[in-house]
Simulated scan of single mutants.
Amino acid sequence: MAFHEPATGNQYAVNCAPPPKRYAVIGNPIEHSRSPFIHEFFARQTGHALAYEKIKAPLDGFGMTVENFFANGGHGLNVTVPFKEEAFALARPNLTLRAQLAAAVNTLWMEKGSLHGCNTDGIGLLNDLLRLGHSPKAKEILLVGAGGAARGVAFPLLDAGCARLHIINRNPQRASALHQHLIEQMPALSPRLSWGSLSDAGGPWDIVINATSSSLGQTAPDLPGNLYKPGALAYDMVYGRKATPFMMQAAEHGAHTVADGLGMLVGQAAASFAIWHGVTPDPEAVLTALRHQLRAG
């Protein structure tokens, strides 16, 4: 008769290890997202076990999708276009100051049974501008777009000391609404803040930031020429394997430097990871790896 060794304590621990915590990025479209790669890389860096997926929510079903995710054991969500303002509304009772100022949320989590929200887009953008050698301090900046992405970065740019922030949008009423929100939150910002339509771009500017999703549709915003000062930066929050339509437009219009939003994506993800796990990962390592991955196709 054969006898078998009983399981050791270590074997028992392995067999009964809890499943990894579940996280996701939610948006529509979502197929292009590199967030799973980034957060899995951060998890390996910091020794955390997690499962991270992409969720494409129906345009009219964001709230229900979020509710189902957390009801089924989800721990945290990154939110991308076009749901950041809806996420703000869902988490309104439990918002960080950054989220309150932005009136948009890109990071959700449950705490003591309640949904909480933060906005880490501004941190990601500011850190990437510094990495590129274009500090916003004392700079005149044109912000193209007035949706959730623009809301996430407008106050951080002003708080970082930019000399002027001009917000323009295809629908100028949305630009006006963002302008009004910022003034209501911080009245002292008024002298440095203005708004208009795409045709009211003015200029020239030290930094032009495309916060619209136009590049996802392979188009550039309908912007006039002569927007760029000597040495100016054109920054697209969208990223890709090659230059975006906005980056190509900016180069043709005289921008000295063009950059996509991959560094911002990694930076905001690092800040979200820190909220969820209590440790800040190294963004440079994952940015290098992700850029290589994109170029390799």
Score class of each variant (00 low, 15 high):
Arg241Met: 14
Ala201Asp: 08
Gly9Thr: 14
Arg241Glu: 15
Phe88His: 13
His116Pro: 07
Leu290Gly: 03
Pro20Val: 08
Ser33Ala: 12
Arg192Ala: 13
Trp205Ala: 01
Thr8Pro: 04
Val266His: 08
Leu125Gln: 00
Ala250Gln: 09
Gly225Asn: 08
Cys162Ile: 07
Leu126Arg: 01
Phe62Thr: 10
Phe69Val: 11
Pro36Thr: 10
Ile167Leu: 13
Ala234Phe: 06
Gly267Trp: 00
Leu108Asp: 10
Ala243Ser: 15
Asp282Ala: 11
Val66Trp: 04
Ala296Lys: 13
Ile141Asp: 06
Gln45Val: 08
Gln249Leu: 14
Val266Leu: 04
Ala274Ile: 02
Ala175Arg: 06
Pro58Ile: 02
Gly76Pro: 09
Ala24Leu: 11
Met247Cys: 14
Gln180Leu: 11
Ala146His: 09
Leu97Tyr: 10
Asp222Gln: 13
Met237Gln: 10
Ala43Thr: 05
Cys118Lys: 03
Thr46Gln: 14
Ile275Gly: 02
Trp195Thr: 03
Ala102Met: 05
Asp222Arg: 14
Leu129His: 01
Ala296Gln: 15
Asn127Asp: 02
Asn210His: 02
Leu216Phe: 09
His277Val: 00
Ser33Thr: 12
Glu284Pro: 00
Pro221Leu: 07
Phe83Gly: 06
Pro172Ile: 11
Arg174Trp: 02
Ser199His: 12
Gln180Tyr: 00
Ala2Phe: 14
